[in-house]
Computed example of a mutant assay.
Amino acid sequence: MGINLPVIWAVLIFFGVMMYVIMDGFDLGIGILFPFIGDRHDRDVMMNTVAPVWDGNETWLVLGGAAMLAAFPLAYSVLLSAFYLPLMFMLMGLIFRGVAFEFRFKASDRSRPHWDKAFIGGSLTAAFFQGVTLGAYIDGIAMNGRHFAGGAFDWVAPFPIFTGIGVVVAYAFLGVTWLIMKTEGRLQWTMLRLANPLTGAMLVFIAAVSVWTPLTHPEIAQRWFSMPNLFFFLPVPLLVAGAAMGIYRALGNRPNVSPFLFALVIIFMGYTGLAISIWPNIIPPGISIWDASSAPQSQGFALVGTLFIVPIILTYTSWSYYVFRGKVKRGEGYH
């Protein structure tokens, strides 16, 4: 039996996108939470919790896109054609957010509110259109053979808009648990008060998507609820429920790290549920990873470099988080 290169590449892309969702998720969540914090110094602390790592987090998005181009060029071309507009809006949001991040610290007191608004708007825009793209992807892409047959606005539909709002809530949820871990005093208590409703909202969106997708996609319902799949996949919702209970219990006991760890479990399980629903298709509803693969020689050549670079990325990412571990206090951090 030979090496199944399409499966290896699918796992690598799954891993890269998951790392981006987790790491840039709480980063974007900080911008989404900005409107709930009025004090300038508390906002400084919020940004300083991610100042040393925020730009490195987006390495994983680049890795996922480059890996798809190398391993699944058909999927790359079709997805860019189908989601050109939401992806462009997402990139514009990331640009505004990145520029605001740098300029805000150098701005005068008079101009700083404008950069705060750019940071908030960029974070909301990037998160929302990531969710819209996700929802439209799950809904399926119109194809004529191996060519995209849909329109530029196919993503404008109830389910993608709903998942767009859901991703905004998910990133705010990650952000609030990150800030509970990284801050103290009044700012941390504010995050603790926001954590309960955000956890509840997160669970509502997870439940809604879990009901909506099987009702509108019979193939997904068949995947989840047929025997013996039902028993194999049952740990996914059980772990989500258990992690949610863990967050609620931790919030009543002066928590620190535990809410963020439970939040990571919830996000990872939701992401795993998505993978289960569409596997082995990379262009839903009917083009598999094998159908969309590049030549084995191309996949093998690119895999050598990828397996070399991924450990390096993991090493410097882990090192940066280790170096900048601990609480961030007022007056400390990026200036």
Rank of each mutant, 00 (worst) to 15 (best):
M92L: 15
F14A: 14
L61A: 13
G246S: 05
Y171W: 10
V11W: 11
P113N: 08
I37L: 06
Y271C: 01
G65K: 00
R110E: 13
A127N: 05
F89M: 15
V21K: 02
T190C: 04
A295R: 09
G140P: 09
G64C: 10
Y84P: 06
S77H: 10
H147W: 01
M46P: 13
F72I: 06
R330G: 15
R112I: 07
K182F: 08
G38Q: 12
S293L: 00
A149E: 09
A149N: 14
A100I: 02
N4G: 01
L69K: 00
F34Y: 13
M19A: 10
L87C: 04
Q297Y: 08
P296S: 03
I165R: 01
F268L: 15
Y334R: 12
T163F: 10
A82H: 06
I22T: 01
A157G: 07
P311E: 12
I278N: 03
V204L: 15
A67Y: 07
I120K: 06
R112H: 09
W290N: 10
G151H: 12
G331T: 06
L215D: 08
N48Y: 13
A82K: 03
L238D: 01
T272D: 05
P259R: 07
T190P: 00
L314A: 12
I289G: 02
A302N: 11
Y171T: 12
L12K: 03
T317P: 06
L12E: 07
Y271T: 11
V62F: 07
I309C: 06
S320T: 15
A250M: 05
I266T: 09
P255I: 12
W155H: 09
L230D: 09
P197T: 01
Y76Q: 00
A107I: 10
W178Q: 07
G65F: 00
R325D: 13
A250K: 05
P73S: 04
V50H: 09
I276T: 08
V323G: 06
P86Y: 08
L79A: 05
N229E: 03
I276C: 07
V169P: 04
Y84S: 01
M23A: 07
L238S: 04
T183D: 09
K329V: 09
S111E: 12
N196Y: 15
R40F: 08
V99Q: 02
G164R: 02
W155C: 10
N253T: 12
I282Y: 07
L63V: 15
A250W: 06
T199C: 08
A71P: 10
F83S: 02
A70W: 11
G273N: 12
L179V: 06
L303H: 05
G38I: 01
G333W: 11
F301A: 14
F308W: 09
I95C: 01
I309K: 01
S111V: 10
I165D: 02
D154G: 12
T125P: 04
V50A: 10
V240M: 14
W54D: 12
M227I: 14
F148W: 07
G16N: 08
I287A: 10
L63E: 05
V328H: 11
D44A: 11
G270M: 09
F15I: 14
A100Q: 03
P160D: 08
F153H: 04
L63F: 14
P158A: 09
S77D: 08
G333D: 12
V240T: 12
M191Q: 05
